[in-house]
C-alpha cells in the first residue's frame, strides 16, 4: 500500500518536472501555428508563418550560414578531437592530468568569458570578423566535447582486440584502421553530433565574434525579438528545436546499438 502511494507521488513529481521543462517549448511551438500576429490570444490554426519564413531571404541566409559553419566546425573538431583523444588515451606522460584538465576547462569557462577573449584575440591579431572567426571559435569550444566523448568510449574499450590484431601481423596503421577506429566509431559519431548541435545552437560566443555576412540563426532570432515577438520567431525557433532534438535522438539511437554489436 505504502509502496503504491510512494510511486504515485514519484510519478506526479516526475510529471511536474517534465512539464516544467517542456511546457514552455510546447507553448512556443503551439503559437507558431496561431493566426494572430500577437502571442496573447489564440485565433485559429495556420501554417502561414512557416510559409513566410521560407520566403524570407534573410532567414534562409542565416540558416545557410549556420549550417555552413556547423558542418565545417564539426568535421574539423571531430577529426582533431578524435586524434587528440586517442593520443591522450594511449600514451602515458608526466603532465597527463594537467593536459586532461586543460581540455576540460573550455567546458567550464563561462561562455561569455570565452567569447570576449576570442574577440580580443581576433581584434589584436587583426583577423577580420566574419565566417572565419566564427568557425575558429566554434571549433575551439566543440573540440573539448569531442575529446571527452571519444575518450569515454576509448576508456571502456578493451585492448585485447588491438593486441590480437598486432599478434596477427597487422601493421599499426592497419590496426588503427580496422580495429581501433571501428571500435571507437560510436563515440566519434556521438561526439560529432554533439559538436554539430552545439555549433548550431550557439549564441553567446557567436554574438562576440560574428562580422559582416555571418549572422547565424540564433543571432537572427535574438535581433528579431527586439522588433517585437511575432509568430515567425516561434516558427523559426520550433524548427531549430526540432532539428536539435532529432540530432540528439539520432545520437542516442546510434550509440547503444553499435556498442552492443561491437562488444559481441
Amino acid at each position: 500500500m505504502q509502496k503504491t502511494w510512494r510511486s504515485h507521488l514519484l510519478l506526479a513529481y516526475s510529471l511536474v518536472i517534465l512539464a516544467f521543462l517542456y511546457l514552455p517549448l510546447l507553448i512556443l511551438a503551439l503559437y507558431s501555428f496561431n493566426e494572430s500576429r500577437i502571442n496573447a490570444v489564440w485565433t485559429g490554426f495556420t501554417l502561414d508563418w512557416y510559409k513566410t519564413l521560407f520566403q524570407n531571404r534573410r532567414v534562409l541566409e542565416a540558416l545557410m550560414n549556420s549550417l555552413f559553419i556547423a558542418i565545417i566546425s564539426t568535421v574539423v573538431s571531430t577529426v582533431l578531437g578524435t586524434i587528440a583523444a586517442i593520443a591522450l588515451n594511449r600514451y602515458q606522460y608526466k603532465c597527463k592530468p594537467v593536459i586532461n584538465g586543460l581540455l576540460y576547462l573550455p567546458i567550464l569557462i563561462p561562455e561569455i568569458v570565452m567569447g570576449l577573449s576570442l574577440l580580443v584575440l581576433f581584434a589584436q591579431t587583426q583577423v577580420p570578423l566574419g565566417k572565419t572567426t566564427l568557425i575558429l571559435a566554434h571549433i575551439t569550444f566543440c573540440l573539448s566535447f569531442v575529446v571527452i566523448t571519444v575518450n569515454a568510449r576509448l576508456e571502456g574499450m578493451r585492448h585485447e582486440l588491438e593486441q590480437a590484431a598486432m599478434d596477427l601481423y597487422a601493421t599499426p596503421l592497419q590496426t588503427f584502421r580496422y580495429v581501433t577506429l571501428p571500435l571507437a566509431m560510436p563515440g566519434i559519431v556521438a561526439g560529432a553530433l554533439i559538436a554539430f548541435t552545439l555549433s548550431i545552437d550557439d549564441f553567446i560566443i557567436s554574438f562576440f565574434v560574428a562580422g559582416p555576412n555571418s549572422t547565424t540563426l540564433p543571432l537572427y532570432i535574438y535581433a528579431m525579438v527586439k522588433r517585437g515577438i511575432s509568430p515567425e520567431i516561434n516558427a523559426l525557433s520550433t524548427l531549430l528545436m526540432c532539428a536539435t532534438i532529432s540530432l540528439v535522438v539520432i545520437a542516442q539511437i546510434l550509440q547503444p546499438q553499435h556498442s552492443s554489436k561491437n562488444n559481441d
Partner: peptide, 15 residues
Amino acid sequence: MKKLLVFLVSVLTMA
C-alpha cells in the same frame, strides 16, 4: 557498422 560508415560518409560529402 556499415550503416554507420554510410552515415559518416554522407556527412562528410555534405561538408
